[in-house]
Design a protein around this nucleic acid. Sequence first.
DNA 1: TTGGCGTTCCTACCTCGGTAGGAGGCGGGC
DNA 2: GCCCGCCTCCTACCGAGGTAGGAACGCCAA
Lengths: 218, 218
Amino acid sequence: MTIRVVVADDQSMVRAGFRMLLAGEPDIEVVAEASNGVEAVEQAARLHPTVMLMDIRMPELNGLEATRRILAVDERIRVLVLTTFDLDEYIYEALRAGASGFVLKDDPPEQLISAIRIVAAGDALLSPAVTQRVIARFTRLPRRAPPAGFKDLTERELDVFRLMARGFSNAEIGHQLFISGTTVKTHITHILQKLHLRDRVQAVVLAHETGLLDDERE
Amino acid sequence: MTIRVVVADDQSMVRAGFRMLLAGEPDIEVVAEASNGVEAVEQAARLHPTVMLMDIRMPELNGLEATRRILAVDERIRVLVLTTFDLDEYIYEALRAGASGFVLKDDPPEQLISAIRIVAAGDALLSPAVTQRVIARFTRLPRRAPPAGFKDLTERELDVFRLMARGFSNAEIGHQLFISGTTVKTHITHILQKLHLRDRVQAVVLAHETGLLDDERE
DNA sequence: TTGGCGTTCCTACCTCGGTAGGAGGCGGGC
DNA sequence: GCCCGCCTCCTACCGAGGTAGGAACGCCAA
């Protein structure tokens, strides 16, 4: 099982460099090159490689959009983004686009090779500096600890809470739960009392900050 | 500059294994061991090592809580969590607790050594399998694209929007912006019209889903 | 059995939020 | 100059949201 790689970069020197670098690895084969995003998508659709080595800055179609289109064609292709700049927006967008890894061009060569094997195996890898940023972003997430009194909520109150947190009116909540709007009011009054909140708006804010909705929103 | 390491694990065999493994590295020195979380915190406070190798499952005090306390004492200490299980909750909690890395015990030894050097240098590193999960979690975040009409909002309307999204009443918003509550009402009416929303609750939901607040909430 | 809790529903009342419609001031562009 | 967009503020009105207080039912544990 050799790992079939397509190299997408607009500089031919860079592509040649990768070819040379990977030529020494018996389990890795560079099967094609692409000099812009459009070509990259075409090659991916035609060859279905194991791994796409993808530069971000490319003419015609940038690497991020190319990644999205490639994965739309064949989601089994593993895209390893390889770029010079570790700008935050690039990283987040690349990961959202579905990239399996993010490696910097000035990382040591053996790290790139190991990254190719890792993503080919179905795992994921980020450059250490990039990992740093992703973790920072990740931990900065507004997942505040649920306040005292949260666990006093009954099952039914949680039902109401979840719907309220999605912006529904009392009548809509009642309709979805097959109860009257006045009952919904009762539940909400209890919720606000237990959580020491003033109105439903504060409840909605709290729900999002604590990640109350994250579970059932698949 | 040698990297000074404390190994915290409740099994003495494991500690001995790490000592042996790291003995071959000239730039790494194991300066102490800890067999539970309490000892780990004590050793960290006493020796201020560069890196703490931290198991999660430990008696007395688990590795996650120990990590929090260590970083409260000296935030320069880099904690590298090293455990057998890559359970999601462990990972997220460890990163939130401030860990700089997450390595599995069945990763290859050279990867552990390289991880120690990486976190000692101030970067971060996750096991490939762990990286996979973090990315999955990360991209699953509810960062919906802002709806059409969002960019039609004026600067002042955005001011109001941001405060509204944090749960303030019209009067409170007016007070903070030095305008009257009725003016706030006017702005909100315009916001709702432009975004095609029914009431402020839906606006709050939208603000959180699109991450409107992420920027200025430092 | 009795009491408590959770769920359901009601009436009555008040406040706040949102709409409608208008008005004045200020600035920049035509 | 004039108009337009933005910001400010107002009155008046209505409906939704929230509170207070009560009531009925089922369930379960003491």
